[in-house]
Design a protein around this nucleic acid. Sequence first.
DNA 1: CATGAATGAGAGTTCATTCAT
DNA 2: TATGAATGAACTCTCATTCAT
Lengths: 236, 236, 236, 236
Amino acid sequence: MMKTTTPDSLATDAPAKARGSARKADSNRPKRNGAVTRQRILDVAMSEFADHGYSGSRIDRISASAGVNVGMIYHYFSNKDDLYLAALEACYKVIRDRERTLDVNEGDPISAMRQLIELTFDFLSTDPYFVRLIMSENLMMGRIAQRSATIPVMTQPLLDSLRTILKRGQAERLFHKDIDAENFYVSILGLCFVHVSNRYTLSSMFQHDFADPEWLKQRKGVVTDILISYLRGSEV
Amino acid sequence: MMKTTTPDSLATDAPAKARGSARKADSNRPKRNGAVTRQRILDVAMSEFADHGYSGSRIDRISASAGVNVGMIYHYFSNKDDLYLAALEACYKVIRDRERTLDVNEGDPISAMRQLIELTFDFLSTDPYFVRLIMSENLMMGRIAQRSATIPVMTQPLLDSLRTILKRGQAERLFHKDIDAENFYVSILGLCFVHVSNRYTLSSMFQHDFADPEWLKQRKGVVTDILISYLRGSEV
Amino acid sequence: MMKTTTPDSLATDAPAKARGSARKADSNRPKRNGAVTRQRILDVAMSEFADHGYSGSRIDRISASAGVNVGMIYHYFSNKDDLYLAALEACYKVIRDRERTLDVNEGDPISAMRQLIELTFDFLSTDPYFVRLIMSENLMMGRIAQRSATIPVMTQPLLDSLRTILKRGQAERLFHKDIDAENFYVSILGLCFVHVSNRYTLSSMFQHDFADPEWLKQRKGVVTDILISYLRGSEV
Amino acid sequence: MMKTTTPDSLATDAPAKARGSARKADSNRPKRNGAVTRQRILDVAMSEFADHGYSGSRIDRISASAGVNVGMIYHYFSNKDDLYLAALEACYKVIRDRERTLDVNEGDPISAMRQLIELTFDFLSTDPYFVRLIMSENLMMGRIAQRSATIPVMTQPLLDSLRTILKRGQAERLFHKDIDAENFYVSILGLCFVHVSNRYTLSSMFQHDFADPEWLKQRKGVVTDILISYLRGSEV
DNA sequence: CATGAATGAGAGTTCATTCAT
DNA sequence: TATGAATGAACTCTCATTCAT
């Protein structure tokens, strides 16, 4: 089975030593370093949960991949639920951090919006572990996410960015007025998410690979067109 | 936990007697009837798999809900995988059948397309078991669906309908030319799917309920606008 | 897995029609014929029990192979134990019948004994289902066989034959006197049985096939030599 | 049902503490000791498999008798097959070790061979668990044993011993020349094995107990006579 | 006679979690 | 901090047997 890889360079703020793929034996790594161990567990957990969903994930497999003892997982994360929550939040942190790298006040609003769309499209397509973790959580009907205090907080900057771009576009009469930031984000998400979330069933339906780079490139154009043309739509 | 309900009236072609939600005791129902029992198991399985995903679903729970012995499930479906496949295919059959109720050759192309979009939107929003089953299957990376011979076959009429509408619209110069039926279906699906698939994480992010009827109604308008305005887009 | 075949021509006294390998559909066979059905079940049961031992055997598999319904097995044989007993007795009947084809009063005693040994050797080597059924029964510590009234009865003619040959040989001073018929039969059995009963573990130990025809032929000579030279042994 | 007992003193090299029959509560034994637990499971497994054959054996019963949790069996032996293989190999180790206690270069060849025969006879008669395990494995057509690398290796010293004795006997003109070591071992095995392997069916046939010490003693003499007289046979 | 749907007990195996060391 | 042995509950699946039709 294909394994989703978590983006080591972005997933955490842990010291550089801790990064790199998890390994069972690494004579160089310090024998006792709580933060590093904790982070290694978290990295592995993200990909395990992404690969198998919550109930499909195995504590044993995580501990083996992280090269630590089962007890360590319980030491740092209490139980499977809490570990899952930590993985989920870490995951949201990655995309929200990346969104903030955009400067939404600069340049023309259309290209700003296009950048945000493309960033979202690329992020979801390139790092499917995010999509998978989100799907998994929704399959559980938000059982874990609803306990999170940081998820709504992390959403705020994204909403602010969207509102800024929309306001600037409306001020310049490039976008029509009836556009709600939150609702528009749902549209972005839907169009950037579905070919990743539904990659396999779409493949069954249409008998080709929806992760093919050529297809993705063309699809990104279509998605951007759809969304931008909608923003400008009421001109018509 | 909320329970998704499968649409009894559509899920099967079994005799009317068999329909109705599963129940443990029904003095009226025949004590030994293979077809009916099989169907009752399948109905229950669809909602169990939708509610809990593949690994979260329990054979015990299915047999209890269906009011049959565990062994019966294995008698009719061999194993969990095959039962899941049967549920998945039954599920696809429902939406594909519903899509075929539309007459794509009649009326103007725009309203034909609008009908298809709205049907899709309504179906996915009203019967989340479909969305959830699809998500679950994709989380398993299509392990089961790829064994299905009927899924691609059932897709054909949908593609035909889309192509018919698009061709008619292009002939009447209502739609621009560069639209690929399959690609457009992915857009429809993305916009009709995401608020259901991501209902719970979106709720965590934005702190309101994405199944609220008022919100859904408004959202359906937006989705239709986005898609239709894209179809006509090249006018701009 | 290799399948032991029961000797159709010898296993039963049922009408010829019933013989031949079991089959699922045979349009020619009479739809209702108790004796035939019963026999077909018994034939299949012998090979099933021989192939898998008691606990490894499956009623379902027997009914499928016999081309009859599960209920039929219970109709004719009450339960698994009784079916097993019937198979075991049928099995003993085959070898005991075969032994009686020898005329122990004719010719010289040595060649009579040699014939009996060779008959035993050939029977056990050629039809391993007998050996396997006996092993299986012994693994169960004779749980079933001890209920059989016919097994000891069927043994009598064999003992009689052995005693006749021994007595004749001793009268002619060809065999020494201290030979007990029963004990001698155990020796015959041991030497004719072990390469069949232990075929697979011997193969693991010595890394060659103990069912190889060439090896069997040579081994039969050795076994006969050992036993005959023992009979004449007191000359030394 | 009679229970075969495994020879605790020989089955393992585990520390003395671990020996003795399995028991549920033993306040003296260490609560957490992998090697000891593993060995206790193996000891119990040997007798369970010997008593019931492979399919008749129950993991539950083994764990109960060993006084450990079911999971422990899977922790140490992965699955029933592997546990069975471990038991089988342990079993072979016992007899092969015992055979090596003989000094085949000392004394006269006839008495050396007699010792080997009697050791084999006694071992198989006294510890029927060996015979039963071997039977069970053969009933499965060597499914497990053929995966063993150690069984053929452990056979080598036995073959060497036999060859040594035979060569010495032939050099001294005590044995005739045409004797193959492997073939002769099959004869030894057959004659020492059959009254144990077929104990119950022989009892049904002849209506007396083939484990009776008096009978065994006399039989041992017969078996030795048969084999030794064959070795010297060609003198005649 | 004959069918196969239905049962219930129990099989092997897995897994989150705890705890002695 | 760190280990991995140990637990107990649960899960998927099997099977001899019964019984309505």
